[in-house]
Design a binder for these strands. Structure first.
Lengths: 343, 343
DNA sequence: CTGAAAGCGCTTACAG
DNA sequence: CTGAAAGCGCTTACAG
């Protein structure tokens, strides 16, 4: 470390040219007509002393900064949504950008300070990500071309990408309907986040398509956990046979895991006696349940990539108009928890 | 954004002093005797025009860089180990550092390019993290004071922090022994990673303490998944009663989840008929199993924080000697899957 | 106490 | 085709 990295001047001296020339050939600027001879000497000299440009200096001069600020509420906190970070990082890297990752823990104050610190680092492009699909107040200090990931700002007017929860739910319910189910329950999240409202819409959409009247008693809310799923599922299982739902759409895979448990405790088999569909396609859970869970996947990777591409997209691709958020499809993942209703 | 951020010169003009003075007061250098009067004028001027220093320029000049490169094999890929990233980011932020996050996908070539790019950004401090406890070849290009997180370099000689898998396993087995179990199986990972060897040692340690001779037939290897756990657990359950283990130590929580399933299929109850201990304390799994799983936690947060603190620690705290890796304790998390053996 | 000047390592008009 | 010079926005000896 103590040996100082070679500078452009060192290359210039060794190649017997000026720093200007070195800069020109190393950046291979289109306009510059430089004989191959000179060009070679420079490249050789650079290679020999292991020259590599100081990005900081370049950025200071050009006022660019090949970096992106990735600020999130607590995204890294959630094992769950990491693929968004991963995909974003990969997409950024592929474009020659580096990602500054900061999570603010949800505090508005930290958020402000974070944005400030990044701005000082000359970071001029931001992705603001949430771990849950949320509608968020506009974080102060963020530039107007910030891209929202898994979130949209309350007023709109910014680019944003969110999962298409409504269509995802619709697909889930259709799957149940296609197998012949008519009494279909929706075990929803009691916190009723953005995703909740959207999925309820999708639930109704699909029911309406098939002409089945929604039974309000079959839409229940509980904590979106295994425990909640077991409790709510159990209550539903315990209804009189004629009123008992045969198909269950669960707010997430953990709720589904709870529903499995409640079924098991009552000697009910999945999918012979009851069909269950989850949401999230959560790693280590959905595929590993017994039987493997049919569920709707959250397009974390796709959204992460989209966000970076929108941010770095072709010049002027964002004309500042108040775009609608992009709805990323949530594919239905068919496994083995859905079958025809009993009898 | 088109409005250019104010520079130090703007503050100087407004306050009627030189840039030198502004720099001096804003950085409140210890030696500098500056009258409160001047000091106030500068601060006021800075506040009025919303001045905030350009970190890039400062870093170029001082050759510092308040940034840390966090390079990992595929850490963000694993929902599982995110807490390491999270804790590292928080610790860095608390010290005024920003984290460049890059994961290389495990490719040595990408790794080299990554380090190179970060070096060009004048990043001079690195954490190299792995998602699994691994022994890694020394990544090329990383400075010698790099801190290894959840990994140690093959030759040693670098600071590193890893989970104390041996002690963790010992605690798990002791827990089983304390409840009276003597026939204790270890359902190990077939890939036999670093953690595997260490845990086997801990398993033997604890057995030896209690004078129970290890039965090689009770140490089995399988894929570290639910399916693997179900298969291996099932085979063990099917042994003749007198040879059947009553306690199970599983390589991870997913294996334990499989063991639960195998037990259930055979009408065996946890913990009445069989006691099970996992490893990882994996979120959304361990605590949500039925019954909740007694397991050993991986100290991801603690390791993440430690890495940053070692990196940023008091000057000269690293004297370059070939330190042994720090072993971070893996606490036993008692829940409800362990009881006395039947009969 | 305070300022002019040099310089961190680049890039980019501008001359020649 | 190629170089001298200015400048990105700071900090820091050095004078005074």
């Amino acid at each position: 470390m103590p040996v100082r990295r070679p500078r452009i001047k060192d290359v210039a001296e060794r190649a017997g040219v000026s720093p200007t020339t070195v800069s020109l050939v190393l950046n291979s600027r289109p306009g510059a007509r430089i004989p191959d001879d000179t060009r070679d000497r420079v490249h050789r000299a650079a290679a020999e002393i292991g020259y590599t440009p100081n990005t900081l200096a370049r950025n200071l001069r050009t006022r660019g900064s090949q970096t992106i600020g990735f600020v999130s509420d607590e995204i890294t906190t959630t094992p769950f949504a990491v693929r968004m970070v991963e995909a974003a990082q990969e997409a950024a890297w592929a474009r020659g950008y580096l990602l500054f990752l900061v999570n603010t823990g949800g505090s508005a104050e930290t958020e402000r300070a974070t944005v400030e610190a990044l701005l000082q680092q000359q970071v001029d492009r931001f992705v603001y990500a949430c771990m849950w699909h949320r509608v968020v107040p506009l974080p102060v200090g963020l530039p107007t071309d910030t891209v929202f990931l898994n979130a949209r700002p309350v007023g709109g007017g910014h680019r944003a990408v969110v999962p298409d929860d409504r269509a995802g739910a619709r697909a889930a319910i259709r799957e149940l309907l296609a197998h012949g189910h008519r009494r279909i329950a929706f075990i929803d999240d009691e916190l009723a986040p953005e995703a909740s409202g959207l999925r309820l819409l999708g639930y109704h959409d699909a029911l309406a398509e098939h002409g089945v009247a929604p039974d309000p008693a079959l839409h229940v809310r509980t904590s979106a956990s295994t425990r909640g799923g077991a409790a709510a599922g159990g209550a539903l299982f315990d209804r009189p046979a004629a009123e008992r739902p045969t198909g269950f759409f669960c707010f997430n895979d953990r709720v589904a895991m709870g529903a499995y448990r409640a079924a098991r405790h009552r000697g009910l088999r999945v999918p012979e006696d009851v069909s269950i569909v989850g949401y999230d396609d959560q790693e280590f859970i959905a595929a590993e349940l017994d039987p493997p869970l049919t569920t709707v996947a959250l397009p974390h990777r796709e959204m992460g990539r989209w966000a970076i591409e929108a941010l770095l997209g072709p010049e002027g691709s964002h004309d500042g108009r108040t775009d609608e958020p992009v709805l990323m499809p949530c594919p239905l993942i068919r496994r083995e928890s859905v079958g025809p209703p009993p009898g």
